[in-house]
Write a protein that binds this DNA or RNA. Sequence first.
DNA 1: CGAGATTTTGAGAGCCTTCAAAGGCGGTGG
DNA 2: CCACCGCCTTTGAAGGCTCTCAAAATCTCG
Lengths: 244, 244
Amino acid sequence: MPGSYFADRLAGMVVLSENERLALERLEERERPIRRGMTLHREREPTSDIYILRRGTMMSSVLLDDGSRQILRFHFPGDMLAAAAMVYREAPETITALSDCLVAPFERTAFAALFTQQPRLAALIMVYNQIERASLTDRLAALGRTSAKARVAAILIEMRNRMRIGDIDGTQSFVLGLTQEEIGDATGLTAVHVNRMLRQLEEEMLIAREGGRVTFLDERAMLRTANYIDRYAKLDLDWLPPAG
Amino acid sequence: MPGSYFADRLAGMVVLSENERLALERLEERERPIRRGMTLHREREPTSDIYILRRGTMMSSVLLDDGSRQILRFHFPGDMLAAAAMVYREAPETITALSDCLVAPFERTAFAALFTQQPRLAALIMVYNQIERASLTDRLAALGRTSAKARVAAILIEMRNRMRIGDIDGTQSFVLGLTQEEIGDATGLTAVHVNRMLRQLEEEMLIAREGGRVTFLDERAMLRTANYIDRYAKLDLDWLPPAG
DNA sequence: CGAGATTTTGAGAGCCTTCAAAGGCGGTGG
DNA sequence: CCACCGCCTTTGAAGGCTCTCAAAATCTCG
């Protein structure tokens, strides 16, 4: 499989040089399929590779002592997975496939080469990390300070926005691909209450549902109830070093 | 003020070369005092510099539409502040001094130089970001899935651990330096309920309080109720490029 | 078509919030 | 040095948001 999904992602931020693109393609030389429901690795297991997600959706989560689960984030094509392997001997989170997926694994030593040979790419990866960090803090604020309805609405918006990257046909309808239990584990709610919140959003005519498909009927109202901020907007990358 | 507080922080992870230390010292050439209660910058204001905290404690927070506040994290000497300025045109969070502080501001273009001239330092900064990310996900799981008592205990542990860096005299007593309102904004609780949880921890003989001073009476039990994980442990940095 | 997973719905309980007010502490100005 | 003031802490009572438990209905997949 030629090309680099991660390069396509970074290309949304800056124009990549040919050398940079080649360096990124080397990261994605190998490829590995992951079936739906399978895990890339489990919490506390020894870390190994870092991955670029090429197809499908995945999630990372942690298990707490009482058996409850917190979903930390969802992953989409072009995302870097298990970046914590560059730091920790044991994985801090479990990564699971929500659909049949394709990932490109590479060794973390590949990073060392990137840092010495392609400084701008290294900087771009740091930029990418900062965006991810901002998303995490948004989720943190949502869990700490917003209602159940707002959190469920926020998940719906996030999934919609991230799934339609590439599709500019601002369709308001999409297949969620999450069980209500999973929405609950992402929002800190029970599946039962997620169900009630979805129903409420439906009764208020903010969304419509049929099967696993969700349609936004009133996007403005959804954004308002979810307190949503687009962290992929208003970037400012003038300071980056020159391309290598 | 010679020296680099950030270098001291990174030195906890690897042995820095002389050149690396000098490069980091250049980041901290300037110095600026911040009085208690003052802000470094506010949410949505244009970003400017990035900072290294040299003395005091600060916090970053966001305000929600309904006026409630979520504290995202606390900052201690050696921490890098406002790193989001390397990405965003507008600050995603407000940074406020909890005590009288000293910060060292530098321009984000300084990063470009670091990436091209000191690749290993750039990699170390990324390592530092990953550790911060892991802490954030721990907080996320705590807010989503743990009880009020566990969250309050977790904050106490975090503050104690981060304040005693450098002091190896495993003292179990420390000055918290937070109001119960602030603990509430960090844990997603009301100040009233924080008070009740502190009282409960006290009644169960896990902690003692006098004035602003907190003493851990049963550290084991505290760690257990808080579900605490030390994210500064079990690092694995063999892959880093050679020192410049 | 059958079995297991998922969704839906109801009833009751509990954790945490809201509202209210009193007490304590530090800091400031006279 | 003392009095006053504002902020912080503490406590009580009541209410609500979300959870737990339970069971039926629906869907998905083999």
